[in-house]
Amino acid sequence: MLRHATKRILGLGLAESRWSAPRFYHERVVDHYNNPRNVGAFDKNDPTVGTGLVGAPACGDVMKLQIKVDEETGKITDACFKTFGCGSAIASSSVATEWVKGKQMEEVLTIKNTEIAKHLSLPPVKLHCSMLAEDAIKAAVKDYEAKRGKPVASTTDKAAEA
């Protein structure tokens, strides 16, 4: 079922008009695109869940990334995403959910889009897709903090903006 839904999302992605000329993507992009990890949704009203909702208006992409946090330790126990956008955006958010799992919230705030882009070998025109994933992580942490009513100690200025 989930698989089916994922395929549907992906179907939207490939035909994305902004994928202009034929371009060869790194096998990791293709892999995350064909088998995205952690597609799904948590209850956004759950107090242990932080939801980050970001978008790239020029492409009409929208990305939702959610984290489930252990209240005792501040560790991210689970993460999921749902992205309507191009393949790079889907792969970026898929990687992001993998990377945040098992990490402390302070730690995930240091994840940079350039790392995601490098991991996926994204072409320059697709860098903003990884930016979307970075912003989504920050927005999710921020949402969780807002629910808890206290900020994470090492929240950077940039994260506060996001």
């Binding site: 999302i9 978008g55 020029a58 309507f84 930016m131």
Partner: peptide, 25 residues
């Protein structure tokens, strides 16, 4: 110019779009 790389986090708009896209899906 429309900034191609701009990202936004407007919950009202994005929430609405997410719902619509899910409905389409």
């Amino acid at each position: 110019e429309v900034d191609e790389e701009q990202t936004i986090s407007e919950p009202e708009l994005l929430g609405e779009i997410m719902e619509i896209r899910e409905a389409v899906e």
